[in-house]
Design a binder for these strands. Sequence first.
DNA 1: GCCCCTTGTGAAAACGATTACATATTGGGG
DNA 2: CCCCAATATGTAATCGTTTTCACAAGGGGC
Lengths: 352, 352
Amino acid sequence: MVTIKDVAREANVSVATVSRVLNGSGPVSEATSRLIRAIAGRMRYVPHSGARSLITSKTDTLGVLLPDLYGEFFSEVIRGMDATAQRHGFHLLISRSHADKHEIETAMRAMRGRVDGVVVMSPDLDAESLLNLPSTIPLVLLCSVSVENGLDSLTIQNCRGTRKMVNHLVSVGHTRIAIIKGSPRNYDAAERLRGYRMALREAGIAHNPTFERSGDFTEAGGYAAALELLAMSPRPTAIFAANDSMAIGVLSALRESGVRVPDEMAVAGFDDIPLARYMDPPLSSVHVPICDLGARAVELLLNGIAHKNGHTRKREHVSTELVIRRSTGGPPEERPPPRPSPQTLVRELISI
Amino acid sequence: MVTIKDVAREANVSVATVSRVLNGSGPVSEATSRLIRAIAGRMRYVPHSGARSLITSKTDTLGVLLPDLYGEFFSEVIRGMDATAQRHGFHLLISRSHADKHEIETAMRAMRGRVDGVVVMSPDLDAESLLNLPSTIPLVLLCSVSVENGLDSLTIQNCRGTRKMVNHLVSVGHTRIAIIKGSPRNYDAAERLRGYRMALREAGIAHNPTFERSGDFTEAGGYAAALELLAMSPRPTAIFAANDSMAIGVLSALRESGVRVPDEMAVAGFDDIPLARYMDPPLSSVHVPICDLGARAVELLLNGIAHKNGHTRKREHVSTELVIRRSTGGPPEERPPPRPSPQTLVRELISI
DNA sequence: GCCCCTTGTGAAAACGATTACATATTGGGG
DNA sequence: CCCCAATATGTAATCGTTTTCACAAGGGGC
């Protein structure tokens, strides 16, 4: 591999001069500059980023620690992160599937010296794992139970979003409203459950524990839970699934059981994945701007890096919006636009 | 940040000894070893990977260059890559959205010195961009038009998979079979179109250019194309969408137009994303093991790295399998299992 | 008692860049 | 003609590791 020394030798100059030319630092005569540029190009010289970051002590890379997420959520959050990172000249070092404290710590150690900061997403409920991270590098916590302080953190407005949706179900006349929960150790899932309970209490509806079914954020989980709910008597008249994947499973189960949606059963989800509007009937959901979530997390991190952690920590929430489609018996939605423009998207959002 | 020198000073030994202890290289007395370990732990010393890789000239990191993929595909391919990489002690440096030759080259330059090899996915048809990559580092081409040779490459069996599906449509009696294409500059899309034409020719069905509608791999695109096809006369009796997202858009359009599937129109997709089985009716599709695709790409790359490129280049294809569900009027599928086990998945696959 | 091997340790040279400092070489003002 | 500033370049230290080599001490075989 050709190094800066090779270029210097070939051009009969010192490495310092080559460095100056290539980085535009320091004065260099026009002639030398051209010569060196030509030689570097011909020799296909590419600077060794590792070596450079050793001396400059910046890597222009951000670490991302993610749990084993599936599908849309993962890809969108990465999209938002990568776009923002690239705009600021940063790269993304991604590592996924971190179950316990030990694995997270190992991953963090591996990041040392390769990144300037880390976004950690660990929706797992035992936050203490993260509390005493052996880390002095800038850190942003994503969708995790907010530790008291000392860390930047960013979460979804889970509780508020769920309340809005349950309120809506109440407002169109439902009183027997079931929920299909997410996995019990998941922070987002817990918050959505909290929102559900809060909304029912506010509406003066008695709490019915059997209407709280467990789920796991998968289509299959939603399918199974829906069958259980159908077997109950009296049945609920509305099902709120803690995410869209489960809601899709619910729709599938209801269809096969011959239960009409929304006439016999209203169904709502959470996330508003792109497919929601293509379901039959189109699925009402709580819209989460996943891409923005990733983007904002990176912004917070970059801010932390710029201020070398000498800034006041922020705790932010990205807001959610109700999207009412036919599955909750709201007004029938216009057919899906051939090419959804931001325009139509905005019109479709009904914020409460 | 505490370095190996700080630890050495604290322990009254040389850095060499600390290094030996922490890496288990060379002989070290039991006592010194324990002392150093204790001190390193107390001081929260974490080795600087950047510095280490400078001298060892290995980064334990793989670069991944991806186009701006959406949804399931992106997340699954990354999942496969990350799992395999981690199993071999490697990390993933991900960079997305590389449109033209110049952007790819910039990204490749940025990777120099941070990675040991790169997986490049650039389904864009002008392969010449990649031909003379200024790179001597191990490389694997993913889902790209196979350049003559000199590079490892991995692609999906697009053509074969499409032929199988179209053959199936023919075998259940269809002769007016339409296709909704992917974007014209996309390699996978082009291959699927080729497979479609080949299958029709083999079946002795006259080629009807108006049955080839353009699409863009999105639900909205499929929706729009379906409406066009419905307006034709005579209409096709079957629609093959070049991916599942478009097929879902098609189903949505047919539903709203009151066209029954599969009685009045058969619909098939490509990819077999998890949602396919939850559609109404469940969608027949060509199953692509996306996760394996990523895993295999990384395996090829690791092999290239191990042999320092001194190996014979491979050109591999991951195979596709037909999954016939109700949307093509095949035998009615059993209801989706509450929790799909590998077992049931296999039973569901019908390979031709 | 000598030699050699083993074991434990330190000094110093890498790795490939950046950069502070020193050193020429100018040219112009006095 | 001298001096100083500006310009162009080289020298060498530095970043945090690993690793080669040298060396000291101790022990056993002769």
